[in-house]
Structure formats: structure tokens, C-alpha cells
Design a binder for these strands. Structure first.
Lengths: 370, 370
DNA sequence: CCGTCACCTGCATCCGTATTCAAAGGGCGC
DNA sequence: GCGCCCTTTGAATACGGATGCAGGTGACGG
């Protein structure tokens, strides 16, 4: 349980007795006030005069005092830490989501403790860790590795938000509006006159994959379109998309919807490089997520953009609000992004986000260029 | 300093008085032993009989007791938390590195607290946080946003490892052997008979970019090859690679070395889609890192693979060892991965890592396929 | 049979801060 | 001038577990 730590062998970094940081009591003694005063100087909303607070904070800077967050966690029973549970960052959608989430949390003074739950590994140990670290909230991203039971145990007694995953447990889940997204894509195919539509799926279990698939089949039926076929390899990855697309070729689809962009990228390459298929002339292709690469001119992938910022905002809001933790299912609409993989219209060159340009002569010297 | 927390407004998740978890003292009372005994039952290597330990741990499971990690941090002065400082996860190399690192740390019982330092943002606040959370060690990944001074302050008094970045401070840095890598690539170009080689750089300051550039120019000179030109946009990104590659076309290179894979991908697309260049017939292309996408058949990018697992292993080793924190520069060789972007030889289809295959009929029902 | 010693166990104390409570000080109205 | 109340401050205690120290037990040798 708690003693599996090989790091019990972690040792002190400095040979000499590491100078312990100043404590509130010491600082208080130095400047002739009480420890309480020091504590109050760093506690927003506490009863202390502006004058004293300024004086103490000034001395704190001078002597290098910083409140010990660990100690205050013990008394306040709040860690200001959010546990982020994730099972893989291989799908490019996740790093961006995690980055946004981390930054969103930072903005409100929360830190992110990352729990990487890998399939075969020490799942139980990690779940124990989540609990013993007393995180204020848990955000689960995908992580279909975890059973609903595991999930419930990990989030028991604390706020939690589940992103991009379904669960039968009574917790808040926040997702992009999968159904609307899938419909938008299918409708787009329909508008373009495509009749035989194939589907390449990702995971089939607790993820949002099932929903996308259901919505897809439903919408197809509503529009009277033909499901050319379905393929999937229980994995959201480029190779899975590659093989899934090839599997569908015999069914002669004129459009393929991939359950996620990363699948679509693999599928597109397979179609073009191995299948000899032209996109979108022979087969139109669309994905879901709008990862960075979807916008690369080499793919120009039509896709449904997940509203990352809003997903994050909602997540942060629910974490810092006092709302009961009971289950709420938030569904946020995304946005259909139409690119050449369905329309064939060329896309413009990518734009550089930031940073100045510079070039250098053949002598290798690099010089600035405004 | 410590009071900027908007999350001070974080509120209790449950309306009813949240049942506090069992404490060691309570458990001790329940089973008629002392609190010390409970503590020892969960402290490896402490003086306690096997019998008692088993009994206590058994009751702990029964009553749902778990040691409070926060409380033990206070007395042991060890958090078993490693701060991971990162500035962006946009370059696909980083998510994989972070994932590996997190898992490597987990294996030895360490958790990862993620600090996302963004350019314009609350850098100072984050640095304060790193210190006040008393992390046992700090791992800085890239993060050229931070000045050497910031770095020193954040890592002061604790173990630290800097990955993929240079610093004048006296800390351990662990990098792939940039020089060997660049040489391997240049030599490869040379072997292929390429004579006019261009270079597309990334960041120019504290990153490893300068080293790669220096090594490149040096090796070129040694082999008597011609530097066709250098371009760069102070950014490791696809668009930067795109524009950098286009900048070089007038110089008529027959090979281009990109300072990182993500640049190379953008560059390759620019060359093919906008420049009308054939790869590798007209221009051979190589990158650095070996990110996942480099192996995609659409790019089949020759590159120098960073030894991620070894970088992680070294990092973890240094963190859990008692070695003095003084500066050591570890340089680990990677591996040249030759693909079609230089040789033109076709690459095989991508392989699916895991997960079973399944397909479905046109009725939308998904069935397993072994 | 008693002394010695190794091994366990409990008691008391400490980690560094938040917070309750009481007391001190100041301002104000009557 | 006095009482009252509000603000500000310090003393004391709690948070939950780790650990030094001393006491207790049993084994073993002499």
C-alpha cells in the first residue's frame, strides 16, 4: 500500500546539514511579532491590519521566508492540488487538453498532480496515492483503463470531473457534444452528396467512442444514407486508422468518418499511399477533435473541433464552486471545421504563432531579423 | 506571493459534514495498539514485529484506514513529489518524454507535480509554488522561458535535473548527445553524396538548438561540405519548419537538416506542397528526435532518435541517489534512424501496438474479431 | 537462577501553520 | 468621563503521523 516506495531510499541532496528554510515562528521572532501574525500576513481575508501585513511581507522577502504549503495543508485540510488521471498522452489531443487544464488550474491557484495510469501496471498503487495525497479534486481524462469501480474509489469524498469518458458512477462528466459533432460531420457528407459512408472506430468500451458510433449510425439512418462498413482496432492511433481504412476499401465507401483525428490521419495516409485512393475525389475523409495536425496542409482534415477551452473552463468552474458533487452531465458543442479532405479546396500555408524570424549566412552566424 | 489563490474560494464538496478519514490514532484505539504502532506498520524498515504489522495492516484494510501523506510529509520532510517544469507540450517530443518520466518516477514511488510555465504568464507565482510545495526534486524539461537565475532559484536546495536545456548554473543536465547526433546525420548526408546542405533551426538561446547548430557547422566544415544556408523562426513548430524550408529553396540545397522533427515535418510538407520539390530526389531531409510522426509512412523521416528511456532512467537514478547535487553533464548517445526521406526506400505499413481488431456489418453492430 | 541483550512497544514530543479565544487598544456616542 | 463595540494582536491548541527514548518481554549463557 503505502510502503512500496523504492524512493524510501531517496537521500539528502547536500552533504552538509541542509539549511532548513525559515519558519513562520523564526521570522516572527526576528521581527518581534507573533507567529499568528505571520500566518495572517499570508492568509487572504484574515484579521490583520494593512500596516502589519505589509511590514511582515516585507521582512519575509528580506529574510527569504515562504510559507510552507505542506504545513498549511495539514491544518486547512486543503492541498490546492488537483489530481489529473490520464492513461496515455499518445493521442495528440490529450497533451493539449492537459496543458490547457493545467494552466487553467494554475490561474486559480491550483496545482496539478499527474497520475499516469498505464494498462498493465500498478493501478492499485496509483489509486492509493490519489487518496493519500488528499487532492482537493480529481480530473479524469479518458482513462478507460479504469473500471467504474476504480473510478468511484479514487474520487470518493472529493470533487471530481470526468472528461471524455462515460461512467455509470454519480459524478460530473464533461464532454464535447459528441452527438452534435457526429451529426454535423454526417450532414456535411450528405450535403456533399456522399452516399456510402464508412466508419472507423476507436475504443469500444467506456470511452466516448460508443456514443460517436451510435450517433453516426442513427444519423445515417435518419438521412437514409448507407453504412458502407465499420472497422476498428480497439485503439485510437495512427496505425489503427491505417488498417481500419484499408479494411473499408473493399466496401467501396465514398466517404469515411474516423472516430478521431489521429485515426483519420493514419487512414488518410493508408488510402493515399497504399490504397491508391484520392482524397476527397474518391473518398472524402473526416475526423473528430481537430488536433493540430488536422490543420496541416498535407492532411487538411475536415473535423469536428473539440471546445478545449470551454471544457477546461467548465472543469475549473466546477472544481472551485461549491456545487454538490452529484452527477451532472455537461455537454458542450464544438465546431465543424471544413477543410480540403472533404471539399478539395486548397488550404493556405500554416502560420507561425510567435517568435521572430532570423536567418544566417553561410558562415553559420545567426543574426536577428525583425 | 502565496495569497493569489482564487481557489481560496474552493468549497467543501459535500453539504453534510464530510466524514473525515480515519486517523492512525483512531485506528489504534479501535484495535488496541498505540498510534506509533500504526505508523510503524506503514513505515518500511521500522521496528515492529511481523505479527503486529500484519494485524494492523489487516485492520487498516478492514476499517479503510490510509496513512495521510500530507501529515507524514511534515515530519519526514519528504514529499515524494517531483516537480516537473515544462513550458509547452506542443512539440510532440515532450508529451512522450513527460509520460515516460512520470511512469519512471511512479515506479519508485514518486509523484509528479506539473508546473506549466508559459511565456507571458505568472512565472514568478509558479516559481514560488515550486518552492512552497517542498518537492523533493525538480526536473526541468526545456523551458527556455526561464532565465538561468529563475532556474537556480526554483531548484535551490533541492535535487534537480535539467533535461534538454543548457544552463550556466551548477546543476545536473542530461541530454541526448547532440553533437554525435548531428554528426551522424551530416555524415549520412555525406555518404549519400549530398553536397549543399541547408539548416533550419529552432530556438536560438538556451535550448539545445545552439549546440546542434554548432555541431552542424563544425561537421560540415570537417567534411568539406557546403552550408547552403540557414533559416529559423525562433520556434520549434511545424509552421516554423514550413517557412524555414521555403526560405532555403533559393539557396538550392540538396539536403536540409532540421533541428527537430517537428520542424522537419513542416519543412517536408512545404517543400513538396508549395515548393514542388521531390524528397529525397531533389532534397534529402532529416530531423532530430524521432517523434512518432517521423515514422509515419507519409513522412518516413530520417532522424536521430533521442534515447528517451535512458534519459528517464538517468534522471530517476540521479533523483533517488544520494549523489551530491553538483553539476554533472550527462550526455547519452541516441541512434540514427534512416528512412525514406533520405534514401527513398519505401517504408512498411505502421503496426498496431495493442488491442484486438474488430469489425462490424452494415447494421452497425460491432462484433469482436480475434 | 540471574544478568545481559536483542527485540518490541508505547509515551511524549515535534514537524510548521491555521485558527479559536481572550485580551488589549482605540473610537465614539451619550 | 464612561461604557460599548470593533479592530487588532498574541497565546494556546489542533492537524496526523514520525521518531527518540525508555520500559517491558523473552531468550540465552554462565
Amino acid at each position: 500500500m503505502g510502503d512500496t516506495s523504492v524512493a524510501a531510499g531517496i537521500e539528502d541532496a547536500t552533504g552538509d546539514p541542509r539549511r532548513r528554510p525559515l519558519t513562520a515562528r523564526q521570522l516572527a521572532a526576528l521581527i518581534g511579532v507573533s507567529q499568528s501574525a505571520v500566518s495572517r500576513a499570508f492568509t487572504p481575508g484574515s484579521s490583520i491590519s494593512d500596516d502589519l501585513r505589509q511590514r511582515i511581507r516585507h521582512s519575509a522577502r528580506e529574510f527569504g521566508y515562504q510559507p510552507n504549503a505542506i504545513a498549511s495543508m495539514l491544518t486547512t485540510r486543503r492541498t490546492n492540488i488537483v489530481g489529473i488521471v490520464v492513461s496515455s498522452m499518445r493521442n495528440p489531443f490529450y497533451p493539449v487538453l492537459i496543458e490547457s487544464l493545467t494552466q487553467g488550474l494554475q490561474k486559480v491557484g491550483l496545482q496539478s498532480l499527474l497520475f499516469n495510469i498505464t494498462p498493465g501496471a500498478n493501478v492499485e498503487e496509483q489509486l492509493f496515492a490519489i487518496r493519500s495525497y488528499n487532492v482537493d479534486a480529481v480530473v479524469v481524462i479518458g482513462a478507460t483503463v479504469l473500471s467504474d469501480k476504480d473510478l468511484a474509489w479514487a474520487t470518493e469524498g472529493r470533487k471530481s470531473v470526468i472528461l471524455n469518458r462515460r461512467t455509470t458512477e454519480d459524478t460530473t462528466t464533461i464532454c464535447c457534444d459528441e452527438t452534435a459533432g457526429v451529426r454535423a460531420v454526417v450532414d456535411h457528407f450528405h450535403t456533399l452528396g456522399r452516399k456510402r459512408i464508412g466508419y472507423v472506430a476507436g475504443l469500444s468500451k467506456t470511452g466516448v467512442g460508443m456514443e460517436r458510433h451510435t450517433a453516426f449510425v442513427t444519423r445515417l439512418a435518419e438521412l437514409g444514407l448507407r453504412l458502407a462498413g465499420t472497422a476498428g482496432y480497439n485503439d485510437y492511433s495512427y496505425p489503427a486508422g491505417w488498417r481500419g481504412a484499408l479494411d473499408l476499401i473493399p466496401a467501396r465507401p465514398d466517404a469515411i468518418f474516423f472516430a478521431s483525428d489521429i485515426l483519420a490521419l493514419g487512414g488518410s495516409d493508408a488510402l493515399r499511399l497504399e490504397g491508391g485512393v484520392r482524397i476527397p475525389e474518391d473518398i472524402a475523409v473526416a475526423g473528430f477533435d481537430d488536433i493540430t495536425m488536422a490543420s496541416w496542409p498535407s492532411y487538411a482534415l475536415t473535423t469536428y473541433r473539440q471546445p478545449i477551452q470551454q471544457l477546461v473552463d467548465q472543469t475549473v468552474t466546477r472544481i472551485i464552486s461549491s456545487a454538490e458533487s452529484g452527477g451532472r452531465h455537461v455537454s458542450i458543442p464544438g465546431e465543424l471545421v471544413i477543410r480540403a479532405s472533404t471539399t478539395g479546396q486548397a488550404t493556405s500555408s500554416p502560420e507561425i504563432g510567435h517568435g521572430g524570424a532570423w536567418t544566417a549566412g553561410s558562415d553559420g552566424h545567426i543574426s536577428g531579423r525583425p
